[in-house]
């Protein structure tokens, strides 16, 4: 078995690296990838680079995947390129390559427990429709802060 360079010391718990090395470069994944079709990310190439030990977790192209998992569906060998992309993103995010929009989302989540802010428009529409005002309870906010501090999100490098 070949040892991968990436994530060797701090491997995320759900991945078995060997699976990503099974790729035959058949291109079924890139053929069905909606991002690749429009000039975004090429999943086959990401898997090839990983297998060759030259994948770059700080490569901005990794963020052009929509996580639609079409690639996994077409792969005959169960390589699941989107999961590799996710794994590489985690490596990159700890070193500061997480895009600004996801950084903002991460900050908001750690502060409020939600990924979207409640705005004036939220209040207006909720009131007009007779829906109760949104209140995030303090206990939930505390729980999320604790979870973030004990897991990877607390280690993502944020600007």
């Amino acid at each position: 078995m070949r040892k991968s360079r990436i994530g060797a010391d701090d491997k995320p718990m759900r991945f078995e690296d060997e699976r990503f090395l099974m790729c035959h470069q058949c291109s079924q994944c890139s053929g069905v990838c909606p991002s690749e079709r429009q000039g975004g990310i090429n999943p086959r190439e990401i898997v090839m680079r990983y297998a060759a030990g030259i994948a770059d977790p700080s490569d901005g192209v990794l963020w052009l995947c929509t996580m639609c998992h079409s690639c996994a569906e077409r792969c005959q060998l169960d390589v699941r390129p989107a999961e590799l992309i996710s794994m590489l993103r985690q490596e990159g995010a700890e070193k500061g390559s997480c895009p600004r929009s996801f950084q903002e989302e991460a900050k908001l989540f750690m502060r409020t427990g939600l990924s979207f802010p409640s705005t004036g428009l939220t209040k207006k529409i909720r009131k007009e429709m007779g829906l109760p005002e949104l209140v995030q309870d303090a206990r939930t906010v505390e729980d999320i802060a604790l979870i973030a501090s004990k897991t990877r999100l607390g280690r993502v490098r944020l600007e």
Partner: peptide, 15 residues
């Protein structure tokens, strides 16, 4: 809370 949506947030911190 947020489910840690599977497109951005989850991919930067799976645990």
């Amino acid at each position: 809370s947020c489910c840690v949506e599977p497109i951005g947030l989850k991919t930067i911190a799976e645990d």
